[in-house]
Design a protein around this nucleic acid. Structure first.
Lengths: 211, 211
DNA sequence: CCCATTCGTGACGCCGCGTCAACTTTTGGT
DNA sequence: ACCAAAAGTTGACGCGGCGTCACGAATGGG
């Protein structure tokens, strides 16, 4: 019924188009996770579907573009949450804390797209920023500018502050993922304390030595 | 004379071996800068030398390994300077300030390897951590642990603190490179103030509006 | 001076790339 | 219900990069 409805409203062409695109994206996610991004070829992706090689190029120009689509998808899922958190914030303490908490929670619960494909067998590690990811950064910068104009945030270079937040967020998230003793809350508290009060304000380490 | 001396002490074999290796590395630097890392092929690199294609594989397994050698080279140049700065530090203010200042200065003055190959036409931006780079991170972590044990640094999670410093350093450095109005000193002061006192302590923005 | 060893060479087979002409399916008009 | 045009799929093809390997040249030891 719902399929028939889709067919009626969108037509068979639109339907298979959407299906094929999704099939490629799904296959790519699987193959990237299995072989690693660098080792994956367009042929690997298309072989993991029941489509022909030529069809791939009706939807994407390269594996890079597929990866970008996956990353952009993730970015578009998390950005509204971050945005909402920052808009809700009345003080800049809430602004910082809400942003970090939301981000680390998301990373913890979305290992599929963010963490799985960070695993790069051939090279040590790499980070790729796609357009929607960068747009998310710009969004943060704009919100910081607004906060500064409203007087809730000290008047400083919003672009550098954005860069610092982004740098801490991604780097700490990586360590959070590879370590088993750091929860999303731990990471958020650490990053928030750093930005609110500097090193002096950082939380004490959990287990100093043992005992 | 010096060449003859080299030949006498090392023999012709060792000599051409070193020369070939260096020729490949030099060619790679040029080609990476011109075509971008992703678009470069092993063939491109070897064509930029007067060697045959097979010879490449006597020295490196892939272009990734060449890139790694170049990155490691850079890492090994900057690490001693960072190390010295941190050892000299008596207070943790000096520890933080010295580390950031040295790092940003280095990035500004070493655009050849760091910035030139950051020029990546095909993909937006990416970061690749090679073994010696990672070893530099571990070195920082170890120094942070030592500072904590000596009581000059608050007792906190040294691994997360290292991650935060690394994240801020690289991300702010990227913005410093692409912006014309941020000097190495500006970047260092910003990062240092953030770590010493949090957002409250950040320097005021230079040109707020105009006047 | 000669032989063993090391190393440079480039042709080779393999495979992934992106294209394109032929073919199939869908659509809209009658 | 039919059909022609449009849209989309297919896989074979030419191209070029990959890593290898048998060959020959250069080197060094005896």
């Amino acid at each position: 019924m719902s399929i028939e409805a889709d067919v009626k409203t969108r037509g068979k062409r639109e339907e298979t188009k959407a299906n094929n695109r999704q099939a490629i994206l799904d296959a790519a996610r699987r193959v990237f996770a299995e072989l690693g991004y660098g080792a994956t070829t367009v042929r690997d992706i298309i072989r993991a579907t029941d489509l022909a090689s030529g069809t791939f190029y009706n939807y994407f120009k390269s594996k890079e573009e597929v990866f970008q689509a996956l990353q952009d998808d993730t970015a578009l899922r998390v950005r509204p949450r971050l945005r909402a958190e920052r808009i809700r914030a009345a003080t800049f303490e809430e602004f910082i804390a809400g942003t970090f908490r939301t981000f680390f929670d998301f990373v913890k619960n979305d290992q599929t797209s963010l963490a799985t494909m960070r695993r790069n067998p051939e090279l040590q590690r790499m980070r790729i920023d796609t357009p929607e990811v960068i747009a998310g950064f710009e969004e943060l910068r704009a919100d910081l500018e607004t906060a500064i104009r409203n007087g809730v945030m000290p008047d400083t270079d919003a672009d550098l502050l954005m860069a610092a937040m982004v740098g801490v967020a991604f780097e700490v998230a990586n360590h959070m993922i590879s370590r088993s003793d750091v929860s999303a809350q731990d990471a958020a508290e650490f990053a928030t304390a750093l930005f609110l009060g500097g090193v002096h304000a950082l939380p004490k380490r959990k287990r100093p030595k043992a005992t």
